[in-house]
Design a protein around this nucleic acid. Sequence first.
DNA 1: CGGACCCGATACCGAGACAGCATTGGATCG
DNA 2: CGATCCAATGCTGTCTCGGTATCGGGTCCG
Lengths: 90, 90
Amino acid sequence: MSLTYIQSFVAVAEEGHVGRAARKLHLTQPPLSRHILALEDELGTRLFERTPRGMKLLPAGEVLLSHARRILAEVDMAIERTKGAGTGGR
Amino acid sequence: MSLTYIQSFVAVAEEGHVGRAARKLHLTQPPLSRHILALEDELGTRLFERTPRGMKLLPAGEVLLSHARRILAEVDMAIERTKGAGTGGR
DNA sequence: CGGACCCGATACCGAGACAGCATTGGATCG
DNA sequence: CGATCCAATGCTGTCTCGGTATCGGGTCCG
C-alpha cells in the first residue's frame, strides 16, 4: 500500500477511465493500470468493473474511495501544519 | 512523502533512538536515518533534535506525530473495511 | 459480416530508488 | 585520552517502477 497508489485509485475512480486519469496525473496508462491491479491484489478484491467504456466502481471500490480521500486530505493537512510549526512556530 | 517514511518517523519518535526503531521495523540504521532526513528535507523543518543519547522530538515533530498516527490508523481501517466489503459483502 | 477503433492488460527494458555494509565524525564518559 | 555510543555518509548491488510497444477483447459502423 502506498500513497501513490491511493492517488492513482482516486483519479481513476473520479475519471472512470484509466487513460484520462493517467493524463491528469502526468503519467501513462500502463503504470496506472498496474497500480489498480496491485491494489486489487493486495486487498484481495476487485475495486472496479471493467466495461468497454472504462472503469466503474464496485461496492468495495466505493468503500475504499471514501477512505482514500480522507487519507489524502490528512496527509495534506499534516504537511501544511508541520511546515507551519517549523517555520512560523518559531 | 510516503507511508513507509511515516512509519519510520513514528517508530523513531516512539523509541527516541534510530537503532532501536530500526530493529523494530526489521531494517538497519542507515536507511532509517535517511528516511528521517528525507522527511525533514521535504518539510523544510527539523523534526528531531540530535542528542548524544538519541533523537528528541522538536515541536514540529510533535505536530507531525499526531497526524502520522492518525494517517496510519486511517490506512489500516481503509484496508480492513475494503477487504470486508469485497469478501463478506458478497 | 469485417475492418476500424477504443479500452485496459501485458512484455520488455532502462533508469532511478532503496536497503545493506562499511566507515566516518562528533559527543560523552571512565 | 582512549573507549563507547550515537546518527550521518560513501558506496554498491538489487529491485522497483515508469515508458514504449504490443496484445486481446469488445463495440460500432459501413
